[in-house]
């Protein structure tokens, strides 16, 4: 389908451009500004060049946070994507039950993120939480406040609880678009369940799966509120992810220069990885 070339279409895009320029470009320029200057208060700024960038890149603390962040995103993707596909395959196709499942599954997605944190903070407590209490009665030594591994497990399970439905709903939408004729043909060919999945369902879900991976990667890489409420980044620094570290630096310690340099590097990392996903995605769109 060829779209006509019409540069007057720019007028239709102008409002968006003005709004986003105001709410994204202006603040971003502030960040760039801070990242190359130093200040001793009183609004006096000095040119610092790339000093902050060097400091950030060589900082052990930030490298450790980046490592944790990558590990976290990798674990999240490795659990949520297969689980989401699995759930989508088992959802009722239509009718009242399908609506029922859709509504219940979408519910965690609409809970404010700090409430999600609060829910799991309470749920995991050994004294008053169902999960913590049950585990301790079963003799499992579980305490997310003091134990780094338990804190990690809690944060990961919380994220799986919070976001797997998004993947499942996306895959469900992809599955809905497969015509019945495909399944009938597979039945005539006596294809096994696995082959139906591998050669019909998976290729048809490719487009939505890429959206799912992109969204889940971006959001898990930016995660802040939920782990902050549950663990506050602890015990020690065990669950201090990039955003938590950044907010500590910028608002807690008011280290504007390093925080700004950190922000830019952080943003660029996300941009780079997302650009790779996006390129793959649009290529797929053209071949379909």
């Amino acid at each position: 389908m060829d779209k006509p070339v019409n540069n007057r279409a720019w007028f239709l895009v102008l409002p968006v451009l003005a709004l986003v320029a105001f709410s994204a470009v202006l603040p971003l320029m502030t960040v760039v500004n801070y990242s190359v200057q130093d200040t001793f208060g009183n609004n006096q700024f000095f040119w610092a060049g790339l000093e902050w960038f060097e400091e950030v890149i060589s900082s052990d603390r930030i490298r450790a946070a980046l490592g944790r962040q990558i590990l976290f995103s990798a674990i999240i993707l490795a659990i949520e994507i297969p689980l989401g596909i699995f759930v989508a395959l088992n959802m009722p196709k239509k009718g009242v039950w399908a609506s029922f499942c859709l509504v219940l599954m979408a519910l965690p997605l609409l809970i404010p993120w700090n409430v999600v944190g609060t829910i799991w903070q309470v749920f995991g407590r050994v004294d008053i939480g169902l999960l913590g209490y049950t585990l301790s009665k079963l003799g499992v030594d579980y305490n997310y406040v003091n134990d780094a591994v338990d804190a990690w497990i809690t944060v990961v399970v919380m994220d799986v609880w919070h976001w797997t439905s998004l993947v499942a709903l996306l895959c469900y939408a992809g599955l809905q678009s497969i015509p019945d004729a495909y399944y009938q043909a597979a039945k005539i060919d006596q294809a096994s369940r696995w082959k139906v999945f591998r050669y019909i369902e998976l290729p048809k879900m490719q487009g939505v799966l890429l959206i799912a991976v992109l969204l889940r990667f971006m959001d898990s890489f930016m995660i802040y509120t939920e782990p902050f409420v549950v663990t506050g980044g602890g015990p020690g620094n065990a669950t201090t992810f990039l955003s938590i570290d950044l907010v500590k630096m910028a608002i807690g310690q008011f280290d504007l220069g390093p925080a700004a340099a950190f922000s830019l590097i952080y943003f660029l990392v996300i941009l780079l990885i997302s650009f790779v996903f996006y390129t793959i995605m649009t290529k797929e769109g053209e071949t379909l």
């Binding site: 968006v16 986003v20 994204a24 202006l26 603040p27 971003l28 502030t30 960040v31 971006m218 890489f221 930016m222 802040y224 990039l242 955003s243 950044l246 907010v247 910028a250 608002i251 504007l256 925080a259 922000s263 952080y266 943003f267 996300i270 941009l271 997302s274 650009f275 996006y278």
Partner: peptide
Amino acid sequence: FWLLTNRMAPAAVFALP
């Protein structure tokens, strides 16, 4: 794509500005 990059910007980066 530039519009989409704004969806990828971490809120933490923008909080202070």
